[in-house]
Amino acid sequence: MNKRLVRPTLVWLIILVILPLPLLWLLNAGLTDSFHNLLIYDLGLLAYTYWLTIVYLSTRPKWLERWLGLPKMYLVHGLLGVCALALALLHSQLSFSMQRWVVLTGWLALYLAIGGVFYAAFFLSGWLVDYSPRAAKLKKRLQRPLQPPGLAVAAPAQLRGNCVDLVSCSLDSPALPADGIYHLL
């Protein structure tokens, strides 16, 4: 079979099924509740497991980068984030709780996740700004005030070899590229 098709399929199988399977089994074997309630718990657990996987993928593990390739790894990261957010939305709409702090922390986490996905789609990827000149102009205007501390924008030319590491690059130049590459310091 084609290696280019087998590896991404295997990665998706591992992430979507095998990683959450032990937690789902432990939760469903340990709780005695209705099928509806267990399904709601499972949705939240799947979203949580996928978010943990996303955090691991964001560290760019070298073995996975060599085996799968960086563009496919970014694709898995992005699509898994959307899947996790959809599962979290379903969990929040179907779930219930008698304790107010559980509800408040759940809604806070959901709003932060939605904000993170929109921030990433607008500022960290080119999905929106490549197709809309208005969005590109808005991104350029908002990029400086909304850039979190410790996040540097490096021009592609700086990453090709003119700079040993991002700390030594000149990041205070007034003309940072709108299509720069983001890296954590």
Rank of each mutant, 00 (worst) to 15 (best):
L112Y: 12
R60V: 11
L110R: 09
Y74G: 02
L52G: 09
I114E: 02
V76D: 00
A86N: 05
A121D: 03
V102R: 15
S95L: 09
V129Q: 15
L128D: 01
L79I: 06
P71H: 04
Q143N: 05
R134P: 00
R66M: 02
L89C: 14
A152I: 11
G106E: 01
A113D: 05
G69H: 03
L52W: 10
V82G: 00
W101Y: 08
V55I: 12
L128A: 10
P133G: 05
D130F: 13
S95A: 15
L70F: 07
K137R: 15
P61N: 03
L128W: 02
I54Y: 06
Q99E: 03
I114F: 02
P149T: 13
G116V: 11
A113H: 01
G150L: 11
L112T: 10
V103F: 12
L110F: 02
A113Q: 08
R60H: 05
G126T: 10
G78F: 02
V102C: 11
L75K: 10
F96P: 04
G150N: 05
L112S: 13
P148C: 13
W51G: 13
R141L: 14
P61I: 02
G78A: 03
F118M: 09
P148H: 05
W51Q: 12
L146F: 15
A152N: 11
S58W: 03
L108I: 14
V117P: 05
K72A: 05
S125F: 02
L108T: 14
G106N: 08
Y131T: 14
L85V: 12
Q99L: 11
Q143W: 06
A121T: 11
V76C: 01
W63N: 05
A152H: 10
A88F: 03
Y119G: 08
L80Q: 03
A120C: 11
F123M: 08
L138M: 11
L68K: 01
Q99R: 13
P71G: 00
Q93E: 14
R66I: 09
R141I: 05
F123E: 08
P148A: 03
P148N: 07
P71W: 03
P61T: 04
L142S: 09
A136G: 12
L124C: 02
L87N: 04
P148F: 09
L85E: 06
L110S: 05
R60G: 04
L89R: 14
I54P: 01
S97N: 08
L90K: 12
L85C: 07
L75Q: 01
L108K: 13
W63T: 10
